[in-house]
Write a protein that binds this DNA or RNA. Structure first.
Length: 803
RNA sequence: GCCGGUGUGUCGGAAUUGGCAGACGAUGCAGACUCAAAAUCUGUUGCUCGCAAGGGCGUGUGGGUUCGAGUCCCACCACCGGCACCA
């Protein structure tokens, strides 16, 4: 059979769509299976070869589940709000809506040419008002539940995007998207209280099946720490509260450090004698970005506050207070007690400013030479009633004491910050809030949703940090829905992460106008059974969407506490030179070209074969030919088919083993070895010179996961079964037929292989050893020696230990 | 510094979790077909000694456990990813 991939692929893509065979069933009694890939941002560049790696992988899982009788939902849509589209629109003076439309059309045709078994009838688009109506609705619920609030604060400002960024979007001091410089800017911003969910976002990781590296990264980002808050009084009678994870070392606190922005400084400004010096330091610190402040970690700076001291609550010692930018306002209480003997940062600072270092935990070297920070082995000293206790016991005891005396309490802190949720750009969901001079922030009535984006003259971001929407006075000026006074709409829009924080719910019931999805659909399809996506979203989309989902769970909109039962992650496809694919390196592979030259089936098979799915792997323009040959050889099987409707005995165990292996490997994301097993099998088949009808039927079914078009062609051409092979019943293996009668085992002498012998599978130790000894090659190595030990591992080897 | 990961031929990568290292594919080499090339097919392709039969060495490094280690333990090294003055 000739293999003309273009006509074959078009033919079957059309047939699948016309027959709707990949549509998820409504009201099905079958068990459901919901597979999800991260919906793409339809960029102007079109599809990247990286996209199909993830899509094909879950396509294979989806196809297998479908063949195994599941009602599979494998949907697709467009995460279409976002800056690149807006920037393109500005540059070329077209509406972002038009840009999006064009890009979506291109992406859609590219995806369809790959033969992915998406249910296109459920296609969604985050920029569709019918969709973002519900994004806005969720925002209103967050607002009504006190989880969305507006606050004046220092935020990350991308100088190039002219827009604020969430903490999660700042990478190495630069913008996650464009890499430009990020500076601090004080602005009034909408915030979402993700911190309210910090503990649950960690704890509920136990409920889900995620890769360890994803869990670790999320935990790390949320940064839970347990310790205590301790109240120090000052000589002025004020209270200065510190947070510490080492309350056990309280007796060793020899000074205190507060951040330059700490409010107590203003309060005590009349008492502080060196206010000029303090102000100068504050000034200098404020000019630095967060990045600069943390980057110059090598050298500690600070100023001692003259005129006020703090009193250690456990021993009434008077200790000095410093300001230093190594203490952050945004974490804990913005103030610390410094224990230089047992904290390296405090130690560095103490050495620089010549402050006393008092050892309170014994077990290390001289604390005058280095801080001793080991909690596991230390024993408390110089600490009154804590002396002799281990660090853990001392922590418990001191917290008890502090709570008794009202001078402190146990406290848990998180590194996670609330989510900065507003953006000063056009192409995003409008925030449905009205600012009324009398009533404050008034939510739009739900009946007014969607609040559609108005058409504006210019999408250009403004330099004063306002959204382009601010210029649309007709749209901005409204009456307050509560009191009727003149009021203004919020002009900032939502970040790109908003629409993607709940899109997987919409797929369950994409055309519903009365709810984000019906309770029945949510109940049937939740949770997502298998979600594959990139590691780069671990502390962005993946975290945000877990937060939203937990909120929706709390207000009883969704039935499960976690959105995704299982998450996996693919590795990147690198350029042929081993570097990241990029235009500037000139190593970009265009998927259209690959599909054109080799066909979608080859592209799919190769992307699954080129390496371990979870690791990065470089593209190879020569290796892909091997996959093309493989598919040609598969098509060629039709020419050597016999009408025998059995598996031939000599291939029986190989077939059963291959069915087993392909099934298991696919479930474990080991697509490369699944394909290798099929390649081995086809080699074995060609070695016999023919294939039976039954064998071809099984082989075609297995192939349909990877090369669905070619498989359909073979299936229909040789009339191997009814309908489409894509929804035929997946072959079942028989465990008892996976074993062969005889097996080749290795014979070792002193652990070195000297010969190989063929033995019956069930041979016992005695039999195997005597056969082994019968080998001439083996005899040469044991003659004249004492046999100390004989080991037999069934089906594997015999090892004779001789001295 | 902390957390996570990786290290195997010329290359991408396998190895049932302690049992034949290098499956499968790619490259390279040799041959068949061809006027020739491409395609296809056959053989071969870790290093090394040997004419050969055959032997020795080999999974980042150094030790250890074991009849047996790519796999387990200890100590290192290199690279990749994330976090990073978080008290």
């Amino acid at each position: 059979m000739k293999y003309e991939h273009k006509s074959i692929e078009q033919k079957w893509q059309k047939a699948w769509e016309e027959n709707g065979i990949f549509h998820a069933e409504e009201n099905s009694t079958k068990p459901k299976f919901y597979t999800l890939i991260e919906f793409p941002y339809p960029s102007g560049q079109g599809l990247h070869v990286g996209h199909p790696r993830s899509y094909t992988a879950l396509d294979i899982i989806s196809r297998k589940k479908r063949m195994q009788g599941y009602n599979v939902l494998y949907p697709i849509g467009w995460d279409a709000f976002g800056l690149p589209t807006e920037n393109f629109a500005i540059k070329n003076h077209v509406h972002p809506k038009e840009v999006t439309k064009k890009n979506v059309a291109r992406f859609k045709s590219q995806l369809q040419s790959l033969g992915l078994s998406f249910d296109w009838s459920r296609e969604i688009n985050t920029t569709d008002p019918k969709y973002y109506k519900w994004t806005q609705w969720i925002f209103l619920q967050l607002f009504k539940n006190g989880l969305a609030y507006k606050k004046e604060m220092a935020v990350n400002w991308c100088t190039s995007c002219k827009c604020v960024l969430a903490n999660e979007e700042v990478v190495n001091g630069g913008c996650e998207r464009c890499g430009s410089e990020v500076v601090r800017k004080v602005k009034s911003q909408w915030m979402l209280k993700i911190t309210e969910y910090a503990d649950r976002l960690i704890k509920d990781l136990d409920l889900v099946d995620y890769p360890e590296r994803v869990k670790a990264q999320q935990k790390n980002w949320i940064g839970k720490s347990t310790g205590a808050e301790v109240d120090f009084t000052t000589t002025t009678g004020d209270t200065l509260t510190v947070y510490t994870t080492r309350p056990d070392t309280l007796f060793g606190a020899t000074y205190m450090v507060i951040s330059p922005e700490h409010p107590i400084i203003e309060k005590l400004s009349s008492v502080i004698k060196n206010m000029d010096e303090i102000r100068a330091y504050q000034e200098a610190a404020s000019k630095k970005s967060d990045f600069e402040r943390t980057e110059v970690a090598k050298d500690k700076t600070g100023v001692k506050i003259e005129g006020v001291e703090a009193i250690n609550p456990v021993n009434n010692t008077q200790i000095p207070i410093f300001i230093s930018d190594y203490v952050l306002v945004s974490y804990g209480t913005g103030a610390i007690m410094a224990v230089p003997a047992h904290d390296t940062r405090d130690w560095d600072f103490a050495k620089k400013f010549n402050l006393p270092i008092i050892e309170v935990v014994k077990g290390g070297e001289d604390v005058q030479k280095a801080a001793f920070t080991d909690c596991a082995t230390g024993i408390l000293v110089n600490s009154d009633y804590l002396d002799g206790l281990s660090v853990d016991d001392a922590k418990k005891k001191i917290i008890e004491k502090l709570e008794e005396t009202g001078k402190g309490h146990a406290k848990v802190n998180f590194k996670l910050r609330d989510w900065v949720f507003s953006r000063q750009r056009y192409w995003g969901e409008p925030i449905p809030i009205i600012h009324c001079p009398c009533c404050g922030f008034v939510p739009l009535d739900e009946s007014e949703l969607p609040l559609e984006l108005p058409d504006v003259e210019s999408y250009e971001p403004t330099d004063n940090g306002e959204s382009p929407l601010a210029l649309m006075t007709d749209w901005v000026n409204v009456k307050c829905p509560k009191c009727g006074a003149d009021a203004k709409r919020e002009t900032d829009t939502m970040p790109q992460w908003a629409g993607s924080s709940w899109y997987f719910l919409r797929y369950m019931d994409p055309h519903n106008d009365n709810a984000l999805a019906s309770p029945e659909a949510l109940k049937y399809w939740s949770p997502v059974d298998w979600y594959n996506g990139g590691m780069e979203h671990t502390t962005l989309h993946l975290l945000y969407s877990r937060f939203w989902h937990k909120f929706l769970y709390d207000i009883k909109v969704v039935p499960t506490p976690e959105p995704y039962a299982k998450r996996t992650s693919h590795g990147m496809i690198l350029g042929e030179d081993g570097g990241k694919m990029s235009k500037s390196r000139g190593n970009v592979v265009n998927p259209d070209e690959i599909v054109d030259i080799y066909g979608a089936d080859t592209m799919r098979t190769f992307e699954m074969f080129l390496g371990d799915f979870e690791n990065a792997a470089p593209w190879s323009s020569s290796s892909i030919k091997g996959c093309r040959r493989f598919i040609e050889r598969f098509m060629g099987l039709t020419d050597i088919m016999t009408e025998n409707n059995e598996i031939r005995p000599e291939l029986e165990s190989t077939f059963h083993k291959t069915i087993k292996k392909v099934g298991e490997d696919v479930e474990n994301l080991k697509f490369n070895t699944a394909i290798a097993a099929l390649m081995s099998l086809i080699n074995d088949i060609y070695a016999t010179g023919s294939i039976t009808r039954k064998e071809l039927e099984i082989f075609t079914k297995l192939m349909s996961l990877f090369a669905p078009h070619a498989a359909e062609e073979v299936w229909s051409e040789r009339k191997l079964g009814k309908g489409f092979v894509s929804v035929a019943e997946f072959p079942v293996y028989d465990e008892s037929k996976c074993v062969e009668n005889t097996v080749e085992i290795a014979v070792q002498v002193n652990g070195k292989i000297r010969d190989k012998i063929v033995v019956p599978v069930d041979i016992d130790q005695q039999g195997a050893v005597s056969l082994a000894k019968a080998s001439e090659k083996v005899a040469a190595f044991i003659n004249g020696k004492n046999i100390v030990k004989e080991i037999y591992v069934k089906g594997k080897l015999v090892n004779i230990v001789a001295k």
